[in-house]
Amino acid sequence: MTSSRSAVMFALALLAPALIYILIIVAYPLFDTVVLSFTNAALRPTYDFVGWANYERIFGAGNFTEVILRTFIWTFFSVATKMIIGTLGATLLNAAIPGQSVFRILTMPPWIVPMAIGIFMWGWMYNGQFGMISGILQNTGIIDKPWPILAYGDSAFWATIVTDVWIGVPMVTIYMLAAMQSIPKDLYEAAWTDGAGRFYRFRRITLPLLVPALLTMSLLSLIATFNSFDIIWILTQGGPSGSTTTMIIDTYKTAMGSRKYGEGAARAVVICIFVSLFCIVYFRAVRKLSQGEAK
């Protein structure tokens, strides 16, 4: 009895640092946010509990569902593009081409450059007067007057996606490259001996064996992109006219811009619920894949 109790104490002692860390860094702020979402907290010393009022307000306002929809569209196109470009890039980097290591290094800059600097660079490229994109389009005669890309809703929406893709592609490329390199070389040699061409080998061997990695990376990228804040904030601050306002931008604007902490917290809780759902899907997928491997 005593020895089993001391074993439990020992286990707790070993777990304590991690538990304390999680309690302070994750559990307490999360709990506090949930509590705050049921209050009318603002920039004043006291606040009252208001029940579901914040939630009723944000879902009743109409534009919140629009924000949710926009966030999903933004996330979908960004993740899909990153996955396609990243996988194609990994395929090229994995091919036996001369100067392979140089190309591998060249994929890294978007990841190495501090994110804010990369985003500012894109901000200048999108500039109508001095930007490279507008300049090239004018010089080639495609447009006849300066095009301030971030000043129009539609173009700003896609421009933020392009920047997010630029920053996110190296991660996907390196991950997919690692996944491709873990496929035994023998499989390709056996297929080549049997007469399978390059495309046939890619379709029947590489692609099916990459499914676990594609799924894992897509879900991880989905979670990160859904919560992506800095790119949109630095480029457009959610504008023009809210056309790039995703849920995370909306939450920040409400809580920090309008100082409506209670309402902001309610929006944060909604984000948390969505991301939790993605995490559940992710963990279930990972479990299923590892079970599949064990079979």
Partner: peptide
């Protein structure tokens, strides 16, 4: 000639079976 045109078939040390 590529392997397929040589009239050979090879069995690899690792068997090289397609796991999927």
């Amino acid at each position: 000639l590529p392997p397929v045109q040589r009239g050979i078939a090879m069995v690899f040390q690792s068997y090289a079976l397609y796991p999927h």
